[in-house]
Structures are given as C-alpha cells and as structure tokens.
C-alpha cells in the first residue's frame, strides 16, 4: 500500500503548478496504524516532491489507542502541528455501542500525551445522539472538553450507515435506534454550550475558538483546489474538474504496480457548481456569499431568490448585506433547505 501511495504521489505531483503545499491532512481512516518507519518513508516521499515551507497546517487523524510519544515526536519532526483525535465519547457504554476499540482510560492517556508533546494544535471528534446517552452524558463529554481546554472540536450527530455492524445490530433489535428528538435536543444544547464557551460554530459540525478553525477543511468548503491521495480519495482543481481514485485497496495497489492511477474524472457543470456552492456554504457560519452567487447564470440566481424566500419567512435563513446564513433554528434543516434551493433541469 505504501509503495502504491508513493507511486501515486509521483504520478500526481504536477497537480499544483508551484508544488507548494499550504495544508496537509493525513486522514480518512486510521493513518495512525502506520509504523514509525512507514511514516518516515511516507513523509520523506511528500517532502521530496513538494515544498512544505509555507505549510499553514499539517494534521494527522488518529485513534486514542495508537498515540505514543515516539510517534508524536516523529510527526512533530516532520512538521505535523495538529492532531485530530477520534474520541467520539468519554463514556464507555457509548464507545461500546459505536463498536470502538478504545475506552475512556485510553482517551485520557492519549490526551495527556498530546497536550504534553510539542504538537501545538489539537481537535477532537465527538458523536452525540447515541441512544446509550442522555443529555447528561453529552454535558459530561463537553465538561471534559472544557477541562482539557480543547480549542477545536467536531461534533457529529450519530448517523447509522447501511452495511455497518451498527446498522445490522439495530435492524436485528440488539441495539436501540437513535432518536431524532434526542438528537435535536442535544444539537441545540451543544450549540448553546459552545457559543457560551467562546467557540464559533464556523461549520455545522465544527466548533473552534478564534484562530483554531481547520485551515484544511475550509479549503473544501471554499471550493479551493485540493489533491487527495489513496483509495477513494477525491481531488478538485478549483474550477470544474474533479477526480476520484477507486475505492478498492486491491485494485488500487495492482493498478499502481503497473504505473497507472485508477481514477475517474468528472467535469462539473454550472448546475453542479451552483449546487455544491449551496451545499457547502449553507453549512458555513459565513453563509452563501452574494458576490459568489451572482456570478451564476440568471436562471439559477432567480431560482435561488424564489426558493430561499420561504425559509427566510420561516426564520431558518437570514439575509445579511453580503450573504444568506442559516439561523440556529435553520441549522437542523440544512439539507432540506439545500434540496429546495438546488437547481436541477
């Protein structure tokens, strides 16, 4: 796999003309399972192809059970300045429901290790709305976030995906199914708590103290170019071209062994670009900028004005001099609004 990754990096090195990276993110699964020497070789490969002198942010996503001070040291030596830790919850019964390998004890140890390392930035992932937890459970989790003084966290409503173990257990009635009302109640509590504690909900699921917003994720939401490497990674040239790599690890490795990147290219139409702008910007605290919107063909702009109006009436969307933004009441309905505002032929 590592050889294939190195091979893909070489094949795609031309993606950015200046070969300068401003953010780097190791994620999409559990990159922390790589061994020290594997990390060494991967980071070397990137460094040999790109300049990372202007790197603003370099994140590694990892699970609590994989954190060691040796790994943190190595990462730091190679420029990693941010850890995104998959905590999910500090409560063992929640972790069990989610089928996670780690327990609360490992989380605390991981946090202590990270906070005492040289890596300056940290973010944690939380999942709320787990049926094993009441509001009290969520409050307990947030209290610990506060206690550790975590400056950035992502909070996701529990989503049961098909073809997962959890889905299977729920179908079989072994596990309780998440409850919408509880999720919405927790979502509201979370938003209030975060505002009160000085976090900005700069994206629906992302909360950061000023200056701690994820620079990398903003690239996705601002329609800036990015290159994704590895099976099922997506890339975008910032204009109309997207490509994504095959999802199958085996097909990926085989193909790259013969020097071919197995990928599919897609060119975005005006409608696609408009719809993606709506989808991503509606989720951002800044909202949909008028200046971007007005660059689209008249039919789409007219449709936008017609379809957003009922939501303004409803108090879910508010118009500012420069944008349209979701209100706190509108946030639980982001997809419903996007669906209406989308333009399809």
């Amino acid at each position: 796999m590592l050889n294939a990754l190195r091979q893909e990096l070489e094949l795609t090195a031309h993606y950015f003309a200046n070969r300068c990276l401003s953010t780097l993110y190791f994620g999409g699964g559990t990159p922390s399972i790589l061994s020290l020497s594997e990390w060494e070789s991967l980071l070397e490969a990137i460094r040999s192809l790109y300049s990372i002198d202007d790197l603003k942010e370099c994140t590694v996503e990892c699970n609590p059970e994989d954190i060691t001070s040796e790994l943190l040291e190595l990462w730091h030596a190679h420029g990693v300045d941010r850890i995104s830790l998959g905590v999910q919850s500090f409560r063992n019964e929640d972790l069990q429901y989610l089928g996670r390998q780690h327990d609360a004890r490992q989380i605390h140890r991981a946090l202590d290790t990270i906070l005492s390392s040289d890596i300056p930035k940290i973010s944690v992932d939380l999942i709320y709305g787990i049926p094993t937890t009441t509001v009290d459970g969520l409050i307990e989790n947030l209290r610990l976030i506060d206690q550790y003084d975590i400056p950035h966290f992502s909070a996701y409503a529990l989503t049961v995906e098909r073809r997962t173990a959890l889905y299977h257990f729920i179908q079989k009635g072994k596990y309780p199914s998440p409850d919408d009302s509880a999720i919405v109640e927790q979502m509201k509590l979370l938003m209030d708590w975060a505002r009160h504690k000085g976090y900005r909900q700069y994206e629906i699921s992302n909360f950061g103290k000023p200056g701690h917003e994820s620079q990398h994720n903003l690239v996705y939401w601002y329609q800036q170019p990015y290159l994704g490497v590895g099976p099922s990674a997506h890339s975008y040239d910032g204009h109309r071209r997207r490509h994504h790599v095959v999802a199958s690890n085996l097909a990926y490795i085989r193909s790259l062994r013969s020097g071919v990147l197995p990928h599919r290219v897609e060119y975005l139409t005006d409608e696609d670009l408009y719809n993606e702008l709506i989808l991503t910007r509606l989720r951002l605290d800044e909202g949909i900028p008028k200046e971007r919107l007005l660059g689209f063909p008249n039919a789409m702009v007219d449709h936008f004005y017609d379809s957003i109006e009922p939501f303004v009436q409803k108090g879910w969307v508010v118009e500012t001099p420069v944008s349209w933004r979701l209100t706190a009441d509108g946030k639980p309905w982001a997809d419903a609004i996007a669906r209406e505002v989308f333009y399809i032929l």
Binding site: T159, I204, Y220
Partner: peptide
C-alpha cells in the same frame, strides 16, 4: 411523526459530490 432534522453530519472532500448527487436525486 414529524422529521426533527434534516442535515448531514460530515461533509468533507469526497462527501461533497456524493451528498450533492444524493440531494439532487431526492429533489
């Protein structure tokens, strides 16, 4: 019962196109 929310939890990189297509299909 009424739907209480309608919002995707995660929307990064590859999620964007997938989610756009899903919402378009639902529309």
């Amino acid at each position: 019962p009424a739907l209480r929310k309608d919002v995707t939890a995660k929307c990064y990189g590859g999620d964007i196109t997938r989610k756009r297509k899903l919402l378009e299909k639902q529309k």
